[in-house]
Nucleic acid binder design. Structure first.
Length: 559
RNA sequence: UGCCUCGUGGUGUAACGGUAGCACGACAGAUUCUGACUCUGUUUGUUAAGGUUCGAAUCCUUACGAGGCAGCCA
């Protein structure tokens, strides 16, 4: 089935846009998604991407992709590439509107010169430490720099020499001249430019001074005629500064900044710093480790882009700092995959079954539906013979009340095959069950109820031992065992879940799964949704990732 | 003890002065060739106190609680 149209939704930002359109403030809407290329995108970014690109789509406007590349010491081309791949995968397109803050360095420089000329900026010679100490505190005003009132000509000269490379990192800085006693610390003469003798991934060594975020961002918005500059709550206190620049510079447009709450998810960390740490210290296998909340990780895990979009639509956009339950995301994943994933049979923990009354060398091709609710998904042939495997926990020697699966003397349906009755249990020396000897009822071919009206409660999956494909299956659980790994004492790493990855070898899959393509997704019946690992799977040695398990009310009831 | 922001069931999210609704969860049941899906039902909420009003989750005041801010990070 193709993507259903994403759900319509309202929020305070769309309300503002409606008002702006109604009042005539804007005729069309331009948003932007402004990642810093210093890491991989995660599900939190997806919320912002869906918001910004979603608004552009709904209002017939456009959304720019602009890389906020103002700090060459942390940014790399690898991230620029992965970010674009992830946004496209999520289903969004910036068309011609790909920009880099570094494209505006010359204009930003000219505007800085103008601020100096206007007496609104000055070159400071204090050290970073001195600047920090004279900023004051949350309750006390700062004290002015001794260089605050130097002549504009002097600042101009120094700023020119800063650009020319005459100073070492940290020796000079350009600051706005606003108010050292302002109750909002951001207005206490913020730094506009710092000296950084670093190679930039785009401008190379052309520059050795780089603008700060606060100075670059709003002006970039204005240059692109962004109407609504949407960012997260931690920039709330920066808005007066954003407005100060716009008000004091001859910018070509009047963008406005709006803030919403970033995404928080239970059992997850979302900060790029921490995700980087997980990668660098080897707690995960990389940015695209299927346990990571990165878009590349979720993609490799098998999460459909549509499910992430739907998730973002259901959590909404507010200013309230909520924490969303991870099961909400999983629910969105199941919702999509239930519709889209073809069904297959796979036995992860095999136990051998012999159908003693089935002819030794006979093989039947059972016709099995690919999807129970969609006839258009067609059918496939699955070989059935005397030697089979079933799931180890689909048999219990001493079944509890209400157990529908196989047990000594009990009869179940082998899905789309036959009714099977367990006649004998074979154990090894240690008492482990190694084989079940069963009989089948020829009158139940295809899994049909027999003419005598007999019924069974349980239907289980199976795989032909003679035809099975052997595979590795990776079961993933949450990366952290604490609901909020960041809360409480100690390091977030203390809460890593040691059972977040279980690797199963020797799993037996029905033959059709042997030719699955990388990334292809299936429902392994009664188990969950799985996809072919796009990185490690090989023809003849398939590797599957469990995307998410099926709901299991039996397991839940057993607790 | 500065400035800014936010408080609606367990978790999220609607209601924009006029019946507190929806999703997920939980619980109970129906259905079922997946103990899935689907369907039905139940449960629980406006932080508090004042005020304005015929009427307040919504407007005002105060209190309480939560979060953000003192990078030459974004």
């Amino acid at each position: 089935m193709s993507d259903s149209p994403d759900k319509a939704h309202r929020d305070f930002i769309r309300d503002i846009i409606d008002e702006d359109l109604a009042s005539g403030r804007h005729q069309s809407i331009v948003t932007r998604f402004p990642p810093e290329p210093n890491g991989y995108l995660h599900i939190g970014h997806a919320k912002s991407i869906c918001l910004n690109f979603g608004i552009a789509r709904e209002y017939g406007g456009r959304c720019h992709l602009r890389f906020d590349d103002t700090n060459p010491s942390k940014e790399e081309q690898e991230y620029v590439d992965s970010i674009q791949e992830d946004i496209r995968w999520l289903g969004f397109d910036w068309g011609e509107h790909l920009y880099f803050a570094s494209d505006y360095f010359e204009q930003l420089y000219d505007w800085a010169v103008q601020l100096i000329r206007d007496g609104k900026a000055y070159v400071d010679e204090q050290s970073a430490e001195e600047i920090r100490q004279t900023r004051g505190s949350l309750t006390e005003p700062g004290t002015p720099s001794p260089w605050r009132d130097r002549p504009a000509e002097e600042s101009l000269d120094l700023f020119t020499r800063m650009r020319a490379g005459e100073f070492a990192d940290g020796e000079r800085v350009l600051r706005a001249r606003i108010d050292m006693a302002h109750p909002n610390l951001n207005l206490r003469d913020p730094v506009l430019y710092r000296i950084l003798h670093a190679h930039h991934h785009r401008t190379g060594d052309r520059w050795c001074i780089y603008p700060m975020y606060d100075y670059a961002h709003g002006q970039s918005d204005a240059l692109e005629h962004i109407t609504h500059s949407i960012c997260t709550l931690e920039f709330e206190n920066h808005r007066p500064l954003y407005d100060w620049f716009i008000d004091n510079l001859p910018v070509p447009a009047r963008p406005r900044q709006y803030e919403f709450a970033r995404l928080n998810l239970t059992y997850t960390v979302m900060s790029k710093r921490k995700l980087l740490q997980l990668v660098r210290e080897g707690h995960v296998a990389g940015w695209d480790d299927p346990r990571m909340p990165t878009l590349s990780g979720l993609r490799r895990r098998g999460y459909p882009a549509e499910s992430i979009r739907n998730f973002c639509a259901t959590i909404g956009v507010t200013k309230y700092q909520s924490t969303n339950d991870f099961v909400l995301l999983e629910n969105a994943v199941r919702d999509v995959m239930n519709r889209t994933a073809a069904r297959r049979m796979a036995v992860l923990d095999p136990i051998r079954v012999t159908i003693t009354n089935y002819p030794e060398d006979q093989v039947e091709e059972m016709e099995v539906a690919n999807h129970p609710e969609q006839e258009s998904a067609g059918t496939r042939r699955v070989p059935f013979c005397r030697d089979l495997y079933i799931e180890r926990d689909d048999f219990l020697e001493e079944p509890p009340k209400g157990y529908f699966r196989l047990s000594p003397g009990a009869e179940v349906r082998f899905r789309s095959a036959y009714f099977i009755r367990c006649q004998e249990v074979v154990k090894d020396a240690t008492g482990t069950v190694v084989e079940l000897r069963c009989t089948y009822d020829p009158d139940t071919r295809g899994g049909q109820n027999p003419p005598d009206g007999r019924k069974v409660k349980g239907t289980i999956h199976w795989v032909s031992a003679r035809h099975a494909v052997e595979a590795e299956v990776r079961l993933y659980d949450r990366l952290f065992s604490a609901e909020n790994p960041d809360a409480g004492e100690g390091d977030f790493l203390d809460h890593l879940n040691p059972g977040s990855l279980t690797v199963l070898k020797g799993c037996r899959l029905e033959p059709a799964l042997g030719s699955a393509e990388p990334g292809e997704a299936f429902q392994f019946e009664r188990l969950g949704y799985f996809c072919v690992d796009a990185r490690d799977s090989r023809p003849g040695a398939p590797v599957f990732n469990r995307t998410v398990g099926l709901r299991d009310s039996w397991a839940k009831a057993q607790k």
